[in-house]
């Protein structure tokens, strides 16, 4: 499906090392128009280095980056006006107000200081009432929302968000997740979202990329990737001991977890047969949870 879409980011064999450390190693992937592309990898996998190379903060040793179909180099830095980015913890001029910071960044994006636009974005990120407060008085969550404001201020087509929910409490994480979904669905922005919160990626991304030690592990549609291979099955029965014995007699390795659920891995298509087997042996099955989570997938792959 993605093949018909316009490619917004195309990385080909991108590599970067710092001394002996190979941070990014022949990395290739694409982000298509309209995607929310989850960008996953353990700490030190090379996600931030790859993002910094896409934004011209770091020079690649080799390979190429194309943005919106144009090969990226320093001469065409104007292309950055079509990209909004938030890299790790957002940083601002703390002695200036939120409004003033956005005004400066808007001007740096080659646009005129448009008060209406600044208020519009502050409204979207819920900071309108604090627009004139100095950034040094902001909480971490507010700074994070201001970080998204600055990425959006010049109305870019592509957003690159590196750990946008970093350091936030669960309420903050949900708020950022909803904001990202709105930005994608209502405003039509394409988003490359790097996060270590796997649940967030699973909930909002349509495509994902996993890297490890600077190399691509896998890239594709989230649903398709999660449906490949075995799924993790959780069963709630009235007779766990008997059920486990029965499953083991069928060569299914299983165990009972601390919550009293029987856990095992199995191909999705065999699950109805397993339930039948239990029910036919007078074991009541109260609950079946058969899903491969991104967390399982991520741990399998990295």
């Amino acid at each position: 499906m993605s093949l018909d879409k316009e490619i917004y980011i195309l990385l080909k064999n991108l590599s970067k090392s710092f001394g002996d450390i190979q941070a990014v190693d022949s990395l290739s992937f694409s982000v298509y128009k309209g995607d929310i592309m989850g960008f996953l990898g353990p700490n030190g996998a090379g996600k931030s280095t790859a993002i910094r190379m896409m934004l011209s903060l770091i020079r690649p040793d080799s390979g190429s980056i194309s943005l919106f179909g144009t090969k990226w180099n320093k001469q065409n830095h104007k292309i950055l006006s079509r990209i909004g980015a938030l890299i790790e913890e957002p940083r601002f001029y703390e002695h200036l107000s939120a409004y003033k910071n956005l005004e400066i960044l808007l001007k740096l994006s080659g646009k005129k200081a448009d008060s209406k636009r600044i208020h519009e974005v502050l409204e979207l990120t819920g900071l309108q009432e604090r627009s004139q407060s100095k950034v040094k008085t902001f909480s971490q969550g507010m700074k994070q929302r201001l970080g998204i404001s600055q990425a959006l201020i010049h109305d870019p087509e592509l957003l690159i968000l590196d750990e946008p929910a970093n350091g936030l409490d669960p309420r903050g994480v949900i708020s950022i997740r909803n904001m990202i979904l709105r930005i994608n669905q209502e405003m039509g922005k394409t988003i490359l979202l790097s996060s270590h919160i796997l649940k967030e990626i699973e909930l909002i991304s349509n495509r994902m990329l996993i890297i490890n030690k600077g190399r691509k592990v896998i890239e594709g549609e989230v649903n398709e990737l999660l449906q490949k291979g075995d799924v993790k099955v959780k069963l709630e029965t009235d007779h766990n001991k008997q059920a486990v014995k029965l499953l083991k007699s069928k060569n299914i390795t299983c165990e009972v977890d601390h919550e009293g659920f029987i856990n095992f891995f199995q191909k999705k298509k065999y699950i109805p047969d397993i339930i039948d087997l239990l029910v036919n042996n007078n074991i009541k099955v109260y609950n079946v949870d058969a899903a491969k989570t991104l967390e399982d997938y991520f741990l399998d792959m990295t």
């Binding site: 011209s56 320093k74 830095h77 940083r91 601002f92 960044l105 994006s109 080659g110 600055q150």
Partner: peptide, 15 residues
């Protein structure tokens, strides 16, 4: 050091 340099350089600004 403040990290504001990266906020500027991700804009269409020539170094």
């Amino acid at each position: 050091n403040n990290g504001t340099l990266r906020m500027i350089l991700i804009r269409p600004v020539s170094r």
